[in-house]
Design a protein around this nucleic acid. Structure first.
Lengths: 350, 350
DNA sequence: TTGTACGCGTTATCAG
DNA sequence: CTGATAACGCGTACAA
């Protein structure tokens, strides 16, 4: 709060009106005479009067702020989502308060307590990789807090959700690898319990079976902490690379994991795509500049943020309880580059 | 605000005490009998009572939130700074509200209005690349809003500041290029008026003159919008590459610009470091995975966020007006990789 | 057309 | 030890 913020009371005293007259004049009420209005608004303008939002919040029982929970803002996908959220929220007069989980269940709880105690009017959340129980969210939801899930959702909480078509995204990515001649394709993804892992794994498996490739469970690995710690990912990659039959290609199913996989190959001297091909989910801005340029499944992150926010604002501003919930699924886009293309391998080998 | 948030009044009515007794009991005042305390706190616990922070803010005339203004959260440097800020702020009971300028002066003004109208207790800001006038900030500062600048500062506002040693960072980077045999070294940086441009340019120039290389003004280019639009950067790069004497190396002085330079070279087919060497300021997590691995000047971003926040909290919680301001300068670190090393060039040419 | 009184949730002050 | 009251800044019935 700034030191000398001017209030309605100050204006009233200065001009000899009552607080209510000033309040009404500033809100351009029809029951105030034009001269009085002019006088008051001139004074307010001159002294740069701004209504105190905290007093308003207290009165209106709403803070006009929405809570955002994501694992990391230092992740292109999430920072793009946040930009999408803000593009809508600010226009509708809402403020966004961001809380990071760093993929920790415990930090998710703490952040959520924080946000709800800060009286956010609604919540946009992509749950942490560690989260398997949703009772904390259910409890908030039951208390009447409007919630919209995006990306990583809680399937058994009945509210609006926005996700990407994880199934098709990874089906396409896996098919692309198969069509480029790879058959031993490993998958490395988030926690087994995460909603996105389900869809992505199913797409991967379906692509394999559609091409008569048996599913080899030893080629499917998980990172319970979302690959946030490199060591976690390194361990899983070591398992894959030490298999009797090494995988010919890796399908990495999150931004952080994809980059970890590349770092792993770089540090172990394994060449991509010469020794092994790579496709990964990533919204990073620099995937085209990597060595080699990375084939990615890209999500419409900004769009996702926009839609989730529109849904949330609908929920928050609904006159009566919303009973029908939408489950919006956005398309993912496969961007083919060098890291997954066999032609490239032959070229480099010659 | 959640639907059925329980208040002190509810507890008072339910238990037949007065509001004040309940308030005191919950704050563990010594003037409440142990039995009453037990009764009240049990009831509060059971009904999950949380004091309403908005009411507290109104009463205490402070929101316990701090405003952060940065150009983009989708920029590793700034997201790392924000993590540093949060690491301190949350522990001290402060909430962080982030506002992005996207390098636009106008959006900086809007965001600042927004934050100050949201009654933040203090402000951490790295001004936008476009910002040349600081009257908006001066005005807030004069009204008593505690402000700490980091990274891009307003030199004539007297308050705490945290910056990196831009001069030495670019002196070292430029010297490194010179010692690797490059003499025609171009510089491409933010707006000429930005505080960091000054320091970085001075370091660059000093390194040249220390090595008896004349400064060629035609090799010094600026991006008024911080290279946020690729076209802006492309234009400047075209100018440099169309010089009669092409530069042999590029020194890029911000994260966004550095990536833009690489993208430019990739799209024009100019090979790094074979055709031209590159060094840039960058805190991106993936510079080691780029083609070629990028030589960078890295800033202690997390540290910077922590220090700025400590300074701000000092300011906000100071009993009397602070008169002596600190200007903390943190070291930058040169990380040498392939993009700037001549040995690499010969290797690749063979 | 303008003023008075009240309430949002909390704590501090003053009374008892 | 406990209760009543005022105040933070605002908007709005209700009164004049």
């Amino acid at each position: 709060m700034r030191f000398d913020a001017i209030t309605i009371k100050d204006i009233a005293n200065a001009l000899g009106f009552s607080k209510s007259t000033v309040s009404r004049a500033l809100r351009d009420s029809h029951e105030i005479s034009p001269e009085t209005k002019k006088l008051i608004s001139a004074y307010a303008e001159e002294h740069n009067y701004r209504p105190n939002p905290i007093a308003l919040s207290l009165k209106e029982k709403r803070s006009r702020s929405i809570g955002i929970v994501v694992c990391e803002i230092a992740n292109s996908f999430f920072s793009q989502v946040i930009n999408g959220i803000e593009s809508i929220a600010y226009d509708c007069g809402y403020n966004a308060i961001i809380s990071q989980t760093h993929e920790s269940f415990e930090r998710e709880i703490v952040g959520l307590n924080y946000l709800s105690s800060r009286s956010v009017d609604g919540l946009l959340i992509s749950v942490s990789a560690e989260t398997t129980s949703f009772s904390h969210l259910k409890s908030l939801h039951n208390k009447g807090l409007p919630i919209v899930f995006f990306d990583r959702v809680a399937s058994d909480i009945k509210t609006h959700k926005v996700t990407v078509d994880n199934f098709t995204g990874s089906y396409d990515a896996t098919t692309h690898l198969i069509e480029n001649g790879f058959t031993r394709i490993a998958s490395i993804s988030l926690s087994q319990h995460s909603s996105i892992t389900q869809g992505r794994l199913n797409g991967y498996k379906k692509a394999l079976t559609d091409h008569y490739i048996p599913i080899d469970e030893s080629l499917i690995r998980y990172c319970a902490h979302g690959g946030l710690f490199y060591e976690e990912l390194e361990k899983e990659m070591n398992v894959l690379l030490n298999l009797k039959q090494r995988p010919q290609a890796i399908f990495a199913s999150s931004d952080k994991i994809t980059m970890g996989v590349l770092r792993y190959f770089k540090s172990t001297g394994i060449r991509v795509p010469n020794d092994i091909a790579v496709v990964g989910f990533s919204n990073s801005e620099t995937t085209d500049l990597l060595q080699p340029a990375l084939t990615v499944v890209r999500q419409p992150a900004f769009e996702m943020g926009k839609i989730a926010t529109e849904m949330l604002i609908n929920l928050m501003e609904a006159k009566r309880a919303v009973k029908v919930f939408e489950n919006r699924v956005l398309p993912a886009e496969l961007v083919v580059r060098d890291s997954s293309v066999k032609q490239m391998i032959e070229l480099l080998n010659n």
